[in-house]
Design a protein around this nucleic acid. Structure first.
Lengths: 185, 185, 185, 185
DNA sequence: GATGAATGAGAATTCATTCAT
DNA sequence: GATGAATGAATTCTCATTCAT
């Protein structure tokens, strides 16, 4: 009875699932039929439910790694940039890039469906504090207006990124740039 | 041949329908089941289909009046404000107010569902030109950066307003203010 | 209070209705939406229901006159033709012509929907006896096989005529000719 | 990867579905609500849609086997009968029997609903050529009139069989006999 | 009497979720 | 553990029929 082997299999399967979900989310949004994700992964639907009892669990799993990367970038940018505002601007750019690239993610962020609460939680817990630190530093340096809420700004950037890829006439990045410019003291 | 009386009834009913739809759109989004709207209005579902053959027709009807008001405000503000930028800022505030107040409208703007094409068209045809005039005037006066697209800005403001009312921690208006500040030359 | 005038109006209206129904039946079959018939007649749907409480009543009314003509032709043909079989053959041709011309009528004959009972009754009461007389005469003259049931033959011809106009590869008349030839002793 | 077991279940279920559909088609015609068929089969509606995505698929499946049998009988009869006309007559009897037995099938043949195109195709492709061969043989032997179209005759027989079982006063077989007699040179 | 707006039952179809194999 | 067949609730849309005006 070698449980290690099993776990290895299960993990491999889970990764296949995550990749498939990411791909389908990108194509059809996070509301995509479970069946489609299963088909993309080449597994049965039951397998998905075994690994991710609710859709939210799957979504969170899909994006956790990328959110983590984003969170870790905050302190690094703060250390390596020429100033707090520059760090802030670059982090927001990076965050926006992440959202725009992962089509559909920004839309999920907007949804207040209970099923997505886990995802919201992840953003609030991991990213909002990082952004708050950047804002505090920049405000402390007198580079931006004081009193800006990290959560609101995060949501604002997220909102601006929604639908970027589905409308060629819209350009989320230019709007984010405007927003960042507006932060200036 | 006294159809006038009939029409009075039908019009009253149509207004009831519009109010009900606006209310339900706010609560459940514009994808709300037709049955729910009918129930809210206290009419049969067939009545909705009689008045508004497609869902798009209903949505457009619900918001047409308010969009019209917004469109007419542009030239007036340009005339009465202290300068083009002030007019622009006030118009955007007004527009954002409209979107935030009419819960659910901003969300519709994002959707690229074919059923909402009529609504998108209304925004593009009526509001984008108004905003474009304001931008041109402000850019001509050297008050804002040049090269900002009316459509993109309209979508950006719309995006910022999405979900404002469903999340007490988010404040769309402050983000719009930031965006408007970012327009400054 | 001149009721004659009223009746004249009502009759005119009824005729308009019959014409419209005949036209719509031809185009869309006897299952056509009541609304379509009303529209074709240029009256409200309520008017149809006032004149013809059930759909069957309308159908019967539409075709009564033509059935009557057909019924009256039987004895005349028997008198004027060169022999009973010739009269029979010509009557069947005439009957088939009637059915083929009034698109949709043959189909109704097949239906055993209770709503069409009245129409069936009309056929059975008026035409079956006429055909029976023709069969009796021809059988009596030894020109056809004995024992053929008028009702069955009437239904057979009716069936052969169904769908004639909707399928260019089918030719009801040639089949009716075959059937009539098969009657020969 | 043992899909064989699964398939056994699915096949059993499919057969249940086919039987139920045949039964309901007989009772209520091929336009019967999907729900009714599902109820008769004792399965959910979704199960029907899984097995037969369109109604046409179900209808074709219901009747395919029997049509096949009929098609194969043509050459056999031609070989084993005392002459081409005898073979033709026996084949038509067999065909009529098939239609009369499978209540509702003749009615489907008449319909030109697009959804039934697949079934029509099956008849045209499989049975019309068989009948054409029989006709050619009989005409070649001088036993029947020349120039009779296989498709028209097939449709004629089909028409004669419609509604046989729903009207005790009608007897499709006797009419088919008449038609076959009428083929004689 | 006529009108046509309103009603609401009925039918098709989709998909999340369960569970027998 | 995995599979995918089965379920059935949910939703849309269409008309026959009624009834207030």
């Amino acid at each position: 009875m070698p449980p290690a082997r099993k776990r290895a299999d299960a993990q491999r399967n889970e990764q296949v699932l995550l990749d498939a979900a990411a791909s389908v989310f990108t194509t059809s949004g996070v509301d995509a039929p479970v069946r489609d994700i299963a088909a993309e992964a080449g597994v049965g639907m039951g397998t998905i439910y075994r690994h991710f009892p609710t859709r939210a669990d799957l979504i969170v799993a899909v994006y956790r790694h990328q959110i983590e990367t984003c969170a870790e970038a905050g302190p690094i940018l703060l250390r390596e940039s020429t100033g707090p505002y520059a760090a802030l601007a670059r982090w927001i750019d990076m965050f926006a890039d992440f959202l725009v690239t992962k089509h559909g993610l920004a839309e999920v962020l907007q949804s207040d469906t209970p099923g997505f609460a886990a995802l919201h939680g992840l953003f609030v817990e991991r990213l909002a504090p990082v952004l708050a630190d950047l804002l505090t530093a920049a405000a402390g340096a007198g580079e931006i207006k004081p009193g800006i809420q990290a959560y609101t700004l995060m949501r604002g950037v997220g909102n601006l990124c929604a639908g970027d890829s589905s409308d060629p006439r819209y350009d989320a990045r230019s709007m984010v740039t405007l927003l960042v410019a507006g932060l200036r003291a």
